[in-house]
């Protein structure tokens, strides 16, 4: 048996950099370095572990929708151990919203062929946490999301979802869409060998016409949401900082009382 895993990975501006919006209110990608969204490394890791624990013939494809530089995210995932990569890139994709992104990803996943789609819990820039659910809806397959533990066996995926009120054990048949949290297990670092091997792994590039999509279905113009304004949050006004000379706790209590918290 074979198991085809597609891992969706996003290329994002570094969260520790100074992130801004461009004039058209999309993410300014010029001033900040981009990288593979750290939370998607967990998805790549789980794909690799599923492969290592499986008797099946497992093929791991990493898929990204993003600008030219998004190839860096694919390279990183390949160097961790994925087998091949698909890059959906098209100028008309600029400014695509979540609904549009899920459309492009779903088309590409179907074209690639899949038994299991693995996603991160959320991107580190948009942070919506909705794309996996949207993919399940579009592909018409079970959604098994936000897992902190996942296993695949005999065409069934099982896992643990830790919610606010309860921890749930979930089960569904493949094909399915799974997302994993940062509690699912540390992602491995690419080895030197992995980095060298990644250079020879195939990266396919698809544009909208390869996916039978029209320009007006995606991008800023095709978006079903509109950002009207983005303003930098004013720096918080400088607070009072005291050094504890033995009375720090009492001084803090006095502050809290002055603010009516006590």
């Amino acid at each position: 048996m074979s198991l085809r895993i597609v891992v969706t990975v996003k290329y994002v501006p570094d969260a520790t950099g100074d992130r801004h919006f461009a004039d058209d209110l999309t993410v300014d990608r010029d001033d900040v370095d981009g990288l593979l969204s750290e939370l998607d490394e967990y998805a790549v890791e789980q794909a690799l572990q599923i492969s290592e624990n499986s008797d099946d013939d497992v093929e791991i494809t990493v898929l990204t929708v993003g600008p030219e530089d998004a190839k860096d995210a694919l390279r990183k995932a390949l160097s961790m151990g994925a087998d091949k990569a698909i890059h959906v890139e098209d100028d008309d994709l600029h400014g695509t919203d979540a609904i549009g992104t899920s459309l492009v990803l779903a088309k590409a996943i179907e074209k690639a062929g899949y038994d299991l789609v693995l996603c991160g819990m959320a991107s580190t820039d948009g942070v919506m946490g909705v794309v996996p659910a949207l993919l399940a809806e579009r592909l018409g397959v079970p959604q098994v999301t936000l897992l902190s533990e996942v296993a695949v066996q005999d065409g069934t995926v099982t896992g643990r979802r830790d919610g606010d009120a309860a921890s749930e054990q979930l089960q569904a048949s493949l094909p399915a869409v799974v997302s994993v949290t940062d509690q699912s297990g540390e992602a491995r670092y690419p080895s030197f060998k992995g980095i060298m091997a990644a250079k020879k792994k195939p990266v396919q590039s698809w544009d909208l016409s390869d996916l039978d999509l029209e320009a007006d279905e995606v991008g800023l113009a095709g978006a079903w949401t509109k950002v009207e304004a983005a303003t930098e949050r004013p720096a918080r006004s400088a607070g009072t900082i005291v050094k504890d000379e033995g009375e720090g706790g009492k001084q803090l209590a006095a502050f809290l009382a002055s603010q009516k918290f006590i």
């Binding site: 607070g239 005291v242 050094k243 504890d244 720090g248 706790g249 803090l252």
Partner: peptide, 17 residues
């Protein structure tokens, strides 16, 4: 970010607070 900050050892400051 703070409105009020105490530079000190939390093992002293927190119990006193």
């Amino acid at each position: 970010l703070v409105d009020y900050g105490v530079v000190g050892d939390l093992f002293d400051v927190v119990p006193q607070l």
